[in-house]
Amino acid sequence: MAIKLTIKKSSAWLDLSQSLSGVILAVFLWTHLVLVSSILLGSDAMNWVARTMELSFLSDDGHGYPLVVTGIAMGIAALALVHVLVALQKLPMSLRQQRALRQQMQVINHSDTRLWRWQAITGVVILLLLPVHLWLIGSAPETIGPQGSADRIWNQGVWMVYLPLLLTVELHAAIGIYRVALKWGAARDLNSRSRLRKIKTIVSVLFITVGIASLLAFLPHAS
């Protein structure tokens, strides 16, 4: 078995890489949120998580290597860039396409198409907000602990970025995973499709709740 890398088959590679980058990003996103939500268990828990992220257990002084966080941020940025570039081809870029889409959606009532439009809209919002988040973290990797985060979120007003980012990204990721599952044939019949759709909604709601709770949990640490 060998993998063939041919320009001729670029479409397959593009489509695969969109699905794959999306899945990795979503998995990272959900892991990330679970880690951040450690604040709900108190600042000690989060401190421990943050230090572990910095690989403190490898360094002698226990301070770890905050650059690891910068590295992760850069990796995510790169992956997101791939995802965006590939996904852009599927979006209506010209005016003609946008008009055709709008007309069709006016005439035909179809919920999955509306869902996709939300995915596209949230995607564009994420495209604007994510770089801010990644820059803030990547440029100050030592501040991912409870105090640093709380200060950033509430004192510097970054919650105005984080809250919309949380909402859009959790919608986008869940819809995206739902679509990837259908796309490659995970839903064998319609029954499991409607079940998948339910799971997708639950995942979005769950993570948005956890996210908002976490944001609020930082409030006492911002002084």
């Binding site: 060998a2 796309k183 490659w184």
Partner: peptide
Amino acid sequence: HMQQIAYLRRKMAMTLIR
């Protein structure tokens, strides 16, 4: 449609591997 197009997509993606 969903099943058939997914089947076809997998089939086509499999041509990347030999």
